[in-house]
Structures are given as C-alpha cells and as structure tokens.
C-alpha cells in the first residue's frame, strides 16, 4: 500500500471501497457487486483469474437491481 503510481491513490481507493461496500449494502445493492483487488500490469494471469471469479459471482447474483429499476422507468 502507498506504493502507487498515483501516490496515495490506492490508499484513498481502499478507504472509499470499504465505505462504499457498506453503503451499497444499506441501500439494498449486494456489496459483492463491488470488488477491489490490486493487480499489477505484469500480472495478467492473476487479472484473468480475478475477473473470471468476479464474473461467476455476478452471474450467481443475477441481474442488478439497478438494471431492473432502469428498465421499469424506461417502460
């Protein structure tokens, strides 16, 4: 942590994500829909693995409640 190209960027991000997960949960959006992982540009396989895992998580959760709300409004 702190060893970031954007100086304290990852420190600020980590704090915001911790806060946001709980705010999302309170607002009725599953906090698993937000994920933060540190992967360097040299770690392609880790990135792929993480994305596949995240995709599975999202698939299991089903469509986002936000998407359904948007569709209702448009209709």
């Amino acid at each position: 942590m702190g060893d970031c190209h954007y100086l304290y960027g990852n420190v600020a991000t980590e704090k915001r994500v911790r806060f946001l997960k709980k705010l999302l949960a309170f607002s009725g959006i599953e906090e698993e829909r937000l994920r933060c992982k540190w992967v360097s540009s040299a770690e392609a396989s880790e990135f792929v693995e993480e994305m596949q895992d995240f995709t599975e998580t999202l698939r299991a959760l089903g469509p986002s409640p936000l998407k359904q709300a948007g569709a209702q409004r448009a209709a």
Binding site: A25, F26, S27, G28, I29, E30, P65, A69
Partner: peptide
Amino acid sequence: KISGLDVKDRFTSWM
C-alpha cells in the same frame, strides 16, 4: 429498522 430488512426490501424501500 432499515438494516433489519433483507437486501431486496432495502432496495425497494429506498427506491
């Protein structure tokens, strides 16, 4: 009170 609802009901209630 809101925290006591399940996640779907929280969403519906806020919306």
